[in-house]
């Protein structure tokens, strides 16, 4: 893939030419200058969509997880399966009715139309319930004795679960970055599109575009997730082991 940036179309279609004969960065240049789609704008959209889902999703599901972990009431026991149902039937599987609903809410071509549905994650609720259950109850009690309300208790406990929060935000970011169906339906205008959608529409009419540009765009589409993952690698692995093994 990396090698293909400099190749011409016929060279890319020949799998034995691993090394390009002549490097030409011209297609990559044309891509960045927005010849086919407003590249920087689209990249920005993708970052906003994925970042928004990660932040909002982490906050909401950590609140929910805290509530489930610290409440023994019957209502909580009744509501917890909601999280399981959400895992099995994610928002995406309701894509068709969701699309008409978002249309009625007038959120078509708004990034919020992708971010808000993406922020509810059943996985997150289960993840944070598990994490908060593992904390020693004395921490919670101590905060309560100081007269803190539940919101306040949640807020003071956040620094304690920072690794788990960052790990979940990372997962959520990656999943959001990869979304295809919903952004494709909701974000119709090119300036509002996300990167994977713009790239796959670039492919559309096969040989009109140099494949090298496609390859360049593909590489750029991996960079943010790869970078985040590389940075959080160790922390992510420990948090995963914590959640999965207990």
């Amino acid at each position: 893939m990396l090698l293909s940036i400099g190749k011409s179309n016929p060279e890319i279609f020949n799998p034995f030419h691993l090394w390009p004969r002549s490097w030409s960065l011209e297609p990559a240049h044309r891509l960045l200058s927005g010849e086919w789609f407003p590249f920087w704008r689209v990249l920005g959209n993708s970052l906003v969509v994925a970042g928004g889902q990660a932040v909002l999703g982490t906050l909401l599901t950590s609140l929910a997880g805290f509530a489930f972990a610290s409440s023994r009431s019957r209502l909580a026991i009744l509501l917890f399966p909601v999280a399981l149902v959400l895992i099995v039937l994610p928002v995406q599987s309701l894509a068709v009715p969701l699309f008409s609903w978002i249309n009625q809410l007038k959120l078509i071509n708004h990034l919020a139309g992708v971010i808000l549905p993406g922020a509810i994650s059943g996985l997150g609720v289960i993840w944070f319930t598990q994490i908060f259950r593992q904390l020693p109850p004395s921490l919670r009690e101590a905060a309560r004795l100081d007269g803190a309300g539940e919101w306040r208790v949640w807020w003071t406990l956040l620094p304690v679960i920072k690794p788990a929060m960052l790990s979940f935000a990372l997962i959520q970011f990656i999943l959001a970055w990869h979304q295809h169906l919903l952004p494709m339906l909701v974000l119709n205008d090119q300036p509002t599109q996300t990167l994977p959608i713009a790239i796959s529409s670039l492919y559309g009419s096969s040989l009109r575009y140099p494949y090298a540009a496609l390859m360049a765009a593909s590489i750029i589409s991996v960079v943010p997730t790869a970078l985040l993952f590389a940075l959080g690698y160790r922390r992510f692995k420990t948090a995963l082991a914590d959640v999965l093994m207990h």
Partner: peptide, 20 residues
């Protein structure tokens, strides 16, 4: 009650999962 902390999540759930 800690259950109030569920409210924001449930609100989004109602709008973007239950409603569709």
């Amino acid at each position: 009650s800690p259950l109030w902390l569920l409210a924001p999540f449930l609100a989004l759930f109602a709008v973007f999962w239950l409603a569709p």
